[in-house]
Every structure is written in C-alpha cells, then in structure tokens.
Design a binder for these strands. Structure first.
Length: 326
DNA sequence: AAGTCGACCAACCGCATGCGT
DNA sequence: GACGCATGCGGTTGGTCGACT
C-alpha cells in the first residue's frame, strides 16, 4: 500500500536552515522539549518537514554537541567501534556523546574509510582481520568447512576482544569529553553554537514539562542534566550503547541462542536509570533461566582479560563511568 | 582572474522500527 | 494480528569552499 510521505511535499522548505528558523525551532524545543516532531512545523510556523526539524535539532542545535575536528582518541574509538559494530553510526555515536551520528558517519566516509583502505592495502596478504571497509566482519563465518569456520570464529572473537578492549580502555584512559579541539566553525555555526548555548540550563525545567508522550525522552533529559553532553531527546545513548554492544557480543556468540541475553544483566545494570525495555526482557528471562549461561562465561572472560591487562575494571569504567557522561 | 576539481558536511530520502489502537 | 502513525537510522545527494592549474 505504501506509506504516505512524512510531510506535504508542497510548501515545505528545503535546503540550509536560516538563523531565524533555528531560533524558532530552539524556542519551541525550549518550551515543549524535544519530541512530537510532527507538531513542530504547525506549532512553530516553520515551513519544514518534521523530519527536517528533528534532524536539525539532533544534528546541530541540541546542546552538548562538539564541532570541529575529531581528536585522535575519538578517531581511534570510531575505528574500533566501527570494526566491532559495523556501520551502526547511532550506536557508535552513543559512545561519543558530543558527536552526532551524522558527524561520525561523515567523518568515516571522508577520512577514515580512506585511511582504513590504505591500511588494508598495506596489510593485504597478511590476514584479513581488519577488513573494515564494509563494516564489521563478524558475518564472515559462513565458511564451508568446520575447521575454517572455527578459525574464522576465533579470529572474530579475538578481533572483537581487541576492539572492545581498545575502545573501552581508550575511553577510560582519556577524558576525551574534556578535551577541547580548536573549533573550526563558520560564522553561522558560531551563531548556532550561541543558540545552543542559550539552551544550557533549560533542560531541567523543560524536562519536567514534557508531556507524557515524551516520557521516554524526558527521562533522558533528566539524566542529561548531570552533564553537558546529551540533551538530544534521543533514546538513552548509554542504554542503546550497552544494548548494541551486547548485540555485537551476542552476534559473536550467537551459536548459543538458548543462552543469549541472559548474560546481559551485568551490562544492563548500568543501563539507563529508568530501566529500558531491554532490561525488562532480561529480567523476564532471568526468572525462567537460572543456569549460568555460556555467554556469561565468555563475557567474564572478556572482562577478565581487560582486568588482567592492567586496565581498570571494565564494568566500573565503561558503563558506570559513562553513566556520568549522560 | 577564471575554471576545475576534490573535500567536506548539512540535509534529504527511503526504509525500518516502535507504539498505540 | 493488522493497521496507521511517528520517529529513528543509514545511505546518498548536492551545495559550498579551498586548493590547484
């Protein structure tokens, strides 16, 4: 049957946003909170598609967005996370709360993809563990022979371990969030920064004024007030990140489908304070599955190795610490 | 100075997903 | 379960700008 377009094609403005439009959008969000984007064009008088409004907010206007060039740490994190998660830009962005998925995607496509390709060419012939060109290679395990499959799986596990370890320990050891990069912003970008700056400090009040349909996002706003990072009204980055990480791990260990998810309690404990649907599902399954699953063992194994290598405890870092970031 | 080219990035588009009825 | 609507996500496009000839 086909879905109707998200907005009327006629009379909808396209192209770059003007400062006036930004102000209209910002003042609306300031008053009503992010969400209910469908209503935004009519309520603000903006001749923009609701999608466009949401995108403009999440990618540009929301407070806590860092602009300018990526730091080495950020770059490394993106590379590692991309290797681990594939082109899940939103998930990757959840580990870099000051960057938008669009930013990361653009950065990957314009800088890192090339870089990795060069690296891959250099390393070609050795092994294909880091063939990240087309996303994670966790799906590479459809080899024909069992021995080959096992070797591939082992390689995947090693790569994932390495990527996970690097990504997390890197984040742990470098307070990237504090780092300031020389902002290379245009004059208009500066003006939008100013707009964003105007928003600093309004979230506490606005989050409490969110209507019930925005409850999902308002909880994030409340969490976000503990830090300047994510106030975007998108699902909790942390919980999403945790979920995605678990999905990645589960895809790695997907062979034990009967055990999957039940291992996630460790990670989900530190998910969004509101408790995600994910957590609920886990708890549900916990009640029906009391055995110690293989994935728990594997997870512990992953975590142990991080500890052994002289890094801080993964659990205490990666999610507890990020809880402060969001 | 003018034209060309490539890099960069904001924004768009279509599909996927979640949620309420 | 089917349906419709709202939102999220990833791929892609197109405009802008600087470097180069």
């Amino acid at each position: 049957m086909g879905r109707p377009p998200c907005c009327e094609k006629v009379g909808v403005k396209k192209g770059p946003w003007t400062p006036e439009e930004d102000i209209m959008l910002v003042s609306y969000v300031q008053e009503h909170g992010p969400g209910n984007w469908r209503a935004v064009p009519t309520k603000t008088g903006l001749r923009r598609c609701s999608k466009s409004c949401r995108l403009r907010w999440t990618n540009y206007l929301r407070p806590g967005i860092k602009r300018g060039s990526f730091t080495d740490q950020e770059e490394k994190m993106i590379i590692q996370l991309q290797a681990l998660l594939g082109n899940k830009w939103a998930a990757i962005a959840s580990y870099l709360p000051e960057r938008t998925d669009n930013d990361i995607k653009n950065y990957w496509n314009t800088h890192l993809k090339k870089k990795m390709k060069n690296l891959e060419e250099k390393c070609s012939g050795e092994d294909d563990l880091f063939s990240v060109e087309n996303g994670h290679n966790l799906s590479s395990s459809n080899s024909t022979s069992r021995g080959q499959w096992e070797r591939t799986l082992q390689a995947d596990i090693n790569m994932a371990k390495k990527a996970l370890h690097n990504a997390l320990s890197l984040e742990n050891s470098t307070p990237y969030i504090k780092q300031e990069t020389p902002a290379t912003v245009s004059t208009y970008a500066s003006s939008t920064e100013n707009i964003a700056r105007l928003l600093q400090g309004w979230m506490p009040s606005s989050s409490s004024t969110n209507n019930s349909e925005n409850s999902k996002t308002s909880s994030n706003n409340i969490a976000a007030t503990t830090d300047s990072s994510s106030c975007d009204g998108t699902p909790s980055a942390e919980s999403k990140g945790g979920m995605v990480l678990m999905e990645a791990l589960e895809s790695l260990f997907g062979l034990e489908s009967s055990f999957e998810r039940s291992s996630s309690d460790q990670l989900s404990q530190t998910a969004s304070p509101e408790g995600s649907k994910f957590q609920v599902e886990i708890k549900k399954e916990e009640n029906t599955n009391s055995q110690v699953p293989l994935s728990v063992m594997l997870e512990n194994w992953l975590l142990d190795e991080n500890t052994i290598q002289g890094k801080d405890d993964l659990t205490s870092f990666s999610f507890d610490e990020t809880a402060d970031l969001f």
